[in-house]
């Protein structure tokens, strides 16, 4: 028969979740875990021998740990591992798959300002800063990281067709619209070389009434 002592402390799904290069290590404890379980996190670069303890994620009861700063070099790949310790059970360790933020990160929807006018709608896309810094400490935007990045803007016109605009610049204007009419705009970020596409930022906008008559 197996006493509790024999079974390891429950620990599963140790992995990185990455959005716009915010790299969070997450894990789960599983169904029969004890509330007294504590976790400790270590990480290292692929190719290094030594594991480094992540300060702030030692003997924590949390089930996530922010490793953004520790995994911020885009030319490196990383591993992280979690040690779970709980009363009456064997300690348990689990390691992530090899992690590359360039390959794994997903892109969040852009931050956009939609400005309605009488016969047009202007769309201003704001730059997206990331936690990644260049060698001289400058904080990089998504555009600086993905050189093929571009924006795709769609304006749905009464469910029959869409107006499309696309490009690398950040200011766009859909022209020739009917006054006092509602439109739905959807703006996505694409980085095709990495097969990355953000979810759309959606804005519902109504053109202004034409008061010139």
């Amino acid at each position: 028969a197996r006493t509790t002592e024999d079974t390891a402390c429950p620990l599963q799904y140790v992995k990185f979740q990455s959005r716009n290069f915010e790299n969070i290590l997450v894990w789960d404890s599983g169904p029969d875990s004890s509330p007294d379980t504590v976790y400790s996190v270590e990480y290292k670069r692929y190719g290094d021998r030594v594991w480094l303890a992540k300060a702030g994620c030692q003997r924590t009861t949390q089930k996530s740990c922010n490793l953004t700063m520790e995994t911020g070099n885009l030319t490196e790949l990383y591993y992280a591992r979690v040690k779970a310790v709980c009363p009456g059970r064997k300690q348990n360790n689990k390691t992530t798959d090899r992690f590359s933020s360039l390959q794994h990160t997903t892109i969040k929807p852009p931050d956009v300002t939609c400005i309605p006018k009488v016969r047009s709608i202007q769309m201003l896309i704001h730059p997206t800063l990331t936690p990644i810094r260049s060698e001289n400490g400058h904080q990089l935007t998504l555009e600086e990281i993905f050189r093929d990045l571009f924006y795709r803007l769609e304006l749905r016109v009464n469910h029959t067709y869409q107006m499309h605009l696309e490009g690398k610049q950040r200011e766009y204007e859909f022209l020739g619209l009917t006054p006092d009419t509602e439109f739905i705009g959807a703006i996505t970020i694409l980085a095709p070389m990495w097969s990355k596409e953000s979810a759309p930022y959606v804005c519902r906008v109504k053109t202004l009434p034409d008061r010139t008559w």
Binding site: K44, Y46, G47, D48, L77, Y79, D97, R98
Partner: peptide
């Protein structure tokens, strides 16, 4: 990417690149 995790999981010498 279709085989990345399978293949890299076979390599447990993470201290050599």
């Amino acid at each position: 990417w279709a085989v990345k995790n399978t293949v890299q999981a076979q390599d447990d010498i993470t201290s050599v690149r």
